[in-house]
Each structure stands twice: as structure tokens, then as C-alpha cells.
Amino acid sequence: MPEQSEGERILSPMRRLGGILLDLFYPPHCSLCGCRIEAEAEGEGAVFCEPCLADILPPPEHRCPLCSHPMAGLMLCPNCDGRHWHLETIVPSCRYEGGVRGMIQRFKYGRDIAMARPLGTLLLRALRDSRLEGKTFDAVVPVPLHPKRERERGFNQADLLARLLSRSTGIPKQDLLKRTRPTAQQAGFDRSHRMENLRGAFVLRQQLPPDASILLIDDVSTTGATLDACAAVLKEEGAAEIAAVVVARG
């Protein structure tokens, strides 16, 4: 067991005390049903009760290895058909239905910032996916919001998720991208309209490290158009490998 530094020895009990105080003032409860949770629980068990956790469904087994679109009984992915992807893969944590759908809507449209923690915890599930096994990333990059939309909402949901992911994994979060123009909300558009809507919407904010391996973060992916538009900009600027993780696939 590695020896603790002097600073760690002082900080460790303070952190523990801070944790106890946080649990006193903000006792752990299930983010879906609101019922009590054991204080000692960790990981997903610290934000969801067992019955609710059982209700959060993982992505379907038969899915597109690239965009994770459900492919039950299909040979070719209808979402990828004839499409050139700039990212390696899109990995969702769960399906966009039931409680998860409600949580994301409360997070984005209800401005319930407390939803960041449970959704961030769910996001960690995606990192255990076989498609990301053995891969290392140089930066976690959130999909940016236009400043006007961010002001309206009060926060960028992808940025909060990326921050939590970065804290859990140790991969540094970098705001490499910027949205240059406000785009209409993607919900309700078909694939071609989504791609058209996003054309030229993103630019690079700062220089990329050479041959960087990037992990893009967003809350929901439906056709993957937004993530791919971001990946296109990063690829153009020299990123070697780009993967994306999202909480849910719509």
C-alpha cells in the first residue's frame, strides 16, 4: 500500500468529514423514485435504488457496432447506410426510455442540475463497453452549446457530465470545441435535416495535441449527427482517434 503524503494525511480526514456532512445535509436517495438508499452504497447504488436500477435497461445486444443503433433482425444499420463517420464508435450507457428519459428531460428542460450526478454515474457504464476496452484517451471533450442557449439553460449538460467523468477517470476535460451559431433543436428532425442543421456549426477553440485520442461526451445521441459534426472538426485538426460516450441512445 503506498504511503500517504503529509498533505494527504491532513486532507483525508477532512474529506471524510466533508463527505459525512454532505450526506447529512444531502442524504443519498434514489434519483428516480426518491426513496432512501443505504449511506454506504457506492457507484450506481449510491444514486439509484435496486428496483429502479433494474428498470434502467442496457442498450440492445444486437446493435450497430459503430452508432449503436438497434439492429434486431437487420443485416445493415439503417442509420449508417451510406454514411461516412468521423468517429470510431458511439457508446451509450442505456436506452432512452422510462426513467432515464424523464431524468434527461428534467436535466435539460427542467434545469434540474441535481440530475447531473446520477446521469454522470450512468455514463461510467459506457466506459466498460467492449468497444472501448484497452483504449486510452488524452482528453474528455464535451459537445458545446451555443452561448445563448447555455445562458438560457444556465449550464451545458454535456459539460457537467464531462466534468464528472473526468473526476472519476482522471482523464483531463478540455473545452476544445465552440459552437459558432445557434442551431435549431435536433429533436424532431430526420437524419438529413440534422446533418444540414449542424453544417459549420462547430470550430476548434484551441490547438489539439498531436495525434490526440479524444473521448466526446453528450447526453443523448439519436442519429449521431452532432457527435459526428464535432468529430469532423477534431479529425480535420489532427485528432488520431475519436470515440463518443452518451448516457442514452434515442
Binding site: F25, P27, S31, L32, C33, G34, C35, R36, I37, A39
Partner: peptide, 20 residues
């Protein structure tokens, strides 16, 4: 989905209630 405040307080963890 229920909000935390829509759940019966008897199903919630209320550490300060006991301390109070």
C-alpha cells in the same frame, strides 16, 4: 418518474429529523 419531494417522507432518509 417521481421527484424526490413527491415521495412520502417515511420512505426518505431524513438524518436531520432524528438529530432535531
Amino acid at each position: 418518474m417521481k421527484a424526490a419531494d413527491a415521495v412520502s417522507p417515511f420512505r426518505q432518509r431524513l438524518p436531520f429529523a432524528g438529530l432535531l
